[in-house]
Amino acid sequence: MANQGLVLVTGATGFVGAAVARAVCAAGFSLRVTARAGSSLANLAGLEAETVPLDLTAPASFAPALRGCRYLFHAAADYRLWVPDAAAMRRVNIDGTLALLREAARQGVERSVYTSSVAALGLTPDGTPADETTQILPAHHVGVYKQSKFEAEQAVRALAATQDIVIVNPSTPVGPGDVKPTPTGQMVLDAARGAMPAYVDTGINIAHVDDVAAGHLLALEKGRAGQPYILGGENLMLRDLLALIAQETGRPAPRLRLPIAPLMPIAWAMERLAERTGKTPLMTPDILRMAKKTMFFSSARAQAELGYAPRPARLAVRDALAWFRASGRLS
């Protein structure tokens, strides 16, 4: 395919960003990716890409990274469900995002695609799938990560009144290349290893990471400026997701359902310990509060306007497990 210009992908060493980078290359663009000092480039193996330094807390690094780029995919973010320093996450997810997008306009970037999250959107009171128009209430944004993504998206929507920015809201990506892994990837790994004997009664939307990446390219091509597009997949109760993983690995599915309320004192103690040790806790009160909500979403707008076509969750899980095995994380 003929070269379509230079594209910058931030966060390309991570899970979603690497998938976007692969999609950008496949679409015939020249690729430039950003990496912080010391970041592993293993997720970019085999890609023909220029790598440049960029730190979202260092605005001086923005202009050199953006210079000469036709398009920007801003997929970098601080994605952790618990942080010892909330202000640090906000500096990356809110301040860094806005400064980078403003610099993109100054550098002549034609269009930017901002990777937000369904964490920035509202939830329905009855647990039916939410969409981009669902009312957003403060109670929907439990924890610093969700709060930071909500505030960032609202600010990006306002910025899109003066520059060409499309917003995409991935749900819960699963698939190959989850190097960290993400909290969801770790859950898939734990379940595959038989280390999740119980579950809580919650629901999530599982999307194949490569579908999410394809959705980014579709948003670049067809998205309306300032509009958010949910890039989701299949809505599943957690027990059904764990049963699916069990089927794919030949293990028995967990049958024990844990009530959330009795877990709160344990979660509180884990968080207090984490504050002293700096180690990420297995469970926090915010994680349990999130688990009380059924986080189902509809990708109907992306399907109708962009041609987004997500595959079933089973295929996402299958590809994730195959990658975990191939990378030596799952024997």
Score class of each variant (00 low, 15 high):
residue 82 W to C: 01
residue 21 A to P: 06
residue 60 A to N: 15
residue 222 K to N: 05
residue 243 A to R: 14
residue 242 L to C: 02
residue 31 L to C: 02
residue 236 L to R: 13
residue 112 S to D: 15
residue 89 M to P: 04
residue 73 F to L: 10
residue 279 K to V: 11
residue 111 R to L: 01
residue 223 G to D: 05
residue 182 T to C: 05
residue 31 L to Q: 02
residue 249 T to L: 02
residue 89 M to Q: 14
residue 55 D to Y: 12
residue 38 G to P: 11
residue 294 T to F: 11
residue 226 G to N: 06
residue 184 T to D: 00
residue 200 V to Q: 08
residue 259 P to E: 11
residue 156 V to S: 10
residue 46 G to D: 10
residue 229 Y to N: 01
residue 154 Q to T: 06
residue 54 L to W: 01
residue 297 F to C: 07
residue 87 A to T: 15
residue 323 W to N: 11
residue 323 W to C: 14
residue 35 A to L: 03
residue 54 L to R: 00
residue 258 L to K: 04
residue 76 A to Y: 05
residue 229 Y to C: 03
residue 134 T to G: 10
residue 53 P to W: 06
residue 9 V to T: 07
residue 222 K to H: 15
residue 288 L to H: 00
residue 133 T to W: 08
residue 192 A to M: 03
residue 102 R to F: 14
residue 279 K to L: 11
residue 80 R to Y: 01
residue 307 G to Y: 08
residue 226 G to I: 02
residue 37 A to D: 07
residue 214 A to F: 07
residue 163 Q to N: 09
residue 256 L to V: 14
residue 76 A to R: 04
residue 16 V to P: 05
residue 259 P to M: 12
residue 231 L to T: 07
residue 223 G to T: 02
residue 117 S to K: 00
residue 43 N to R: 09
residue 104 A to K: 04
residue 271 E to H: 05
residue 260 I to K: 07
residue 269 A to W: 07
residue 82 W to Q: 00
residue 265 P to M: 05
residue 247 Q to P: 15
residue 205 N to F: 08
residue 113 V to Y: 01
residue 264 M to W: 04
residue 114 Y to S: 10
residue 247 Q to R: 15
residue 70 R to H: 06
residue 159 L to I: 12
residue 204 I to N: 08
residue 39 S to L: 08
residue 192 A to K: 02
residue 127 G to S: 10
residue 246 A to P: 01
residue 108 G to V: 13
residue 31 L to D: 02
residue 59 P to V: 10
residue 18 A to W: 03
residue 164 D to Y: 02
residue 315 L to F: 13
residue 52 V to Q: 10
residue 103 E to L: 06
residue 143 G to Q: 03
residue 95 D to S: 12
residue 316 A to R: 06
residue 109 V to H: 05
residue 264 M to I: 12
residue 226 G to L: 13
residue 208 H to P: 12
residue 117 S to A: 06
residue 88 A to I: 11
residue 292 K to N: 11
residue 26 A to K: 11
residue 306 L to E: 03
residue 77 A to V: 08
residue 109 V to I: 13
residue 242 L to T: 01
residue 52 V to D: 09
residue 14 G to R: 03
residue 325 R to W: 15
residue 309 A to Q: 14
residue 98 L to Y: 13
residue 66 L to N: 02
residue 313 A to W: 08
residue 55 D to V: 05
residue 152 A to H: 08
residue 70 R to C: 05
residue 29 F to R: 00
residue 299 S to D: 04
residue 86 A to G: 10
residue 16 V to W: 07
residue 73 F to N: 05
residue 245 I to Y: 03
residue 320 A to I: 12
residue 196 M to S: 00
residue 41 L to F: 13
residue 5 G to K: 01
residue 201 D to C: 08
residue 193 R to C: 00
residue 208 H to G: 15
residue 49 A to F: 07
residue 92 V to H: 05
residue 166 V to Q: 00
residue 260 I to W: 11
residue 152 A to G: 14
residue 5 G to Y: 01
